[in-house]
Design a protein around this nucleic acid. Sequence first.
RNA 1: CGGGGUGUAGCUCAGUAUGGUUAGAGUACCUGGUUUGGGACCAGGGGGCCGAAGGUUCGAGUCCUUUCACCCCGACCA
Length: 434
Amino acid sequence: MRRSRAFIPTTKEAPSDATLPSHQFLVRGGFINQQGSGLYNFLPLGKIVLDKIRKIVKEELDDAGCSEVQLSFVTPLSLWQRSGRAETMGKEMLRISDRHDADFVLSPTNEEAMVELVKNRVTSYKDLPINLYQINTKFRDEARPRYGLLRGREFLMKDGYSFHASKEDMVREFDLMEETYKKIFTRLGLDFRVVQADSGAIGGEGSKEFHVLADSGEDTIVVCDVCDYGANIETIFESEEEIDALNEKSYEELQSKSIEEKCNCGGTLSFKKGIEVGHIFQLGDKYSSALEAKFNDETGKPQAFEMATFGIGVSRLVASVIEQNHDENGCIWTKETCPYMVNIMVSNIKETAQVELGEALYTQFREAGVETILDDRKDRFGFKMKDAELIGFPYTLIIGKELMNGEVQIYDRKTTQKVGVGVDEVFAKLMELI
RNA sequence: CGGGGUGUAGCUCAGUAUGGUUAGAGUACCUGGUUUGGGACCAGGGGGCCGAAGGUUCGAGUCCUUUCACCCCGACCA
């Protein structure tokens, strides 16, 4: 992509209501813009990042034996009435009616729809287990949307549902998904913890949350400094007062607050703030029983499916990457999430030697399959550097005045270091880095 | 859903207590020129139903009523 022709509306100032780094930098960097309360548009750069994350999620799930489907976003209200969630989910479900006055909802999650899909199509234990997922828009009419992509009303979520003939098999899949989720978040380059959690409104027994560690996280979790134990404070403190008091504390306050109990492994426990980016539940037969979804077991007797459900906040992950990877100048994308890997910056487009080298390298990198953007705008060096830092390309190749000495520079966004490289070596050098 | 706040240029905001020329600044944008290693400078220019509707008044961005939207603090969530 040529920067001169791209739609990347960056700004120097952030919207006044954006308080979090991810919100400010994603808006300022031209990744997203707000359409309404809790509603966001994804601009070209934001869309690239979103799709990259989505792709990683898909690759790992498919590798683990899951199958992708796509359910209709608009679902009949009757589906929710049968499970009782038309009542229990309350106003969070956005209801609409069509021209015939029939009632529908914009799906906030899809347990019912998925059970309906499998019901009477999977009828034998021989067809089990099965794990279906989709990566699709969800709508939850939150009382108070906030923090940009971290708490929108419309968001992109991966929701998966597995069906089993026995509880043991369901638990096996639950554990497999835990490992799969770890692979996904590791690939994304995130520092995260798996914690014991409440199963909340979705229902069910065992439940684990995946938290990206970040100062701005909305949840407070307890982690061990030795083993991988972690827990949401909702599961280890009894009183509401205690939980509320902890949630109100800032990151700094929590840092200094020690926990007397030791972890079972002997390690020290401490508080952290986390952003919940994944949640897996052991559902049991809650929905399959309610909707009478059954299969025949080995003896020919009908049994309700044992189920588990698995969620990942895909659009929330876009913001999470930035919450964890930024500095005062802007975004620092990880290699798996960056909108472009290499930004070739022609410092002064009036210098034909610079332009020619930029064009040549642009072609060379693209032919090598590297996601590359060429900053061919008329602006000055400082302006373009600030822009590159705000957007957060992992590497910016600066073609500037050192060209007279046969040198260009590679700017590393993460370390903010610039290193001079000979014109002849720069391609090989960058290919090595990425 | 309770409590509070804000709607004025693409963006950030003055102006509203006390109604009175043609509604402002910074930034962004356009034109010309000078610049070219850290968000340049000079000159000129375009851009507004002052959120919407109604009302009071000779006169409303400013006062009154209604309404919509957005934000913040709480209770709830991938």
